[in-house]
């Protein structure tokens, strides 16, 4: 019997990365090489803090807060 890991999705600037369910928002942000101080995170329509752990099938959207020029 083959068991497939439960996964969730992390979306940033139009790119999507699959992660294991249970990954925290902090882990996802760091995996992308981003700073916790420069982004906000949403799951569905809800803003979430860095300790939130993704459930199977959830999509974490990471939005850069940094503007320039």
């Amino acid at each position: 019997m083959i068991l497939f890991p439960m996964t969730a999705t992390v979306r940033y600037r139009g790119r999507e990365v699959t992660v294991e369910a249970g990954t925290s928002v902090k882990q996802a942000i760091q995996m992308l090489g981003l700073s916790l101080e420069g982004v906000v995170a949403k799951v569905g329509n809800k803003l979430v803090t860095e300790d939130y752990r993704l459930k199977e099938g959830e999509v974490l959207e990471i939005i850069s807060a940094i503007s320039g020029g």
């Binding site: 420069g38 949403k42 803003l47 807060a65």
Partner: peptide, 10 residues
């Protein structure tokens, strides 16, 4: 901070 203004806007 920008993070706060983004959070406020959302």
């Amino acid at each position: 901070t920008e993070r706060e203004t983004a959070t406020y806007a959302i």
